[in-house]
């Protein structure tokens, strides 16, 4: 049997890295996370646990990652626009400390996250983005 040249072989993703496996796992983890209310011991332990495992996977590079770009094109400067807009409003509302009259993003999000379904959706966004970071 002829041996394949090294640069033509592509490593297949491991079973648990495939979307058909990791998406249902992330959804299940999110549904569980959505059951724990803010300030509860369970919520804190769950964030520590799931986040801890993802950080461990990311730092030990046990997950197949994409190739990082060697340099960024000049268009990357556009990313400063949303960061600055968001940062200015977060900073202004935080230092004004005016409560509900001029609320921070956290104050606006808190009542929304009291709903179990919205909270699960928040968990799904957080875990999915975390998984994306780990795979980078």
């Amino acid at each position: 049997m002829m041996e394949q040249p090294h640069d033509l072989t592509v490593e297949a993703p491991r079973t648990w890295e495939r979307p058909v496996v990791c998406v249902p796992v992330l959804v299940a983890l999110s549904l569980v996370g959505g059951r724990f209310p803010s300030f509860s011991t369970e919520a804190n332990l769950y964030v520590f646990g799931t986040g801890g495992v993802l950080i461990w996977l990311g730092l030990t590079r046990r997950v197949q990652g994409h190739t990082a770009p060697q340099r960024l094109s000049s268009g990357a400067i556009w990313w400063t626009l949303p960061v600055v807009v968001f940062g200015v409003f977060e900073g202004a509302t935080f230092f004004a400390a005016a409560g509900d009259d001029f609320p921070t993003f956290s104050l606006l999000a808190d009542p929304l996250l009291e709903d179990r379904l919205v909270r699960s959706a928040g968990w799904l966004v957080w875990l999915s983005a975390f998984w994306g970071l780990v795979r980078r």
Partner: peptide, 12 residues
């Protein structure tokens, strides 16, 4: 940073 975001919004 991302872990803190999760802790801030989902556990606190």
């Amino acid at each position: 940073f991302w872990w803190w975001v999760g802790w801030h919004f989902l556990a606190r």
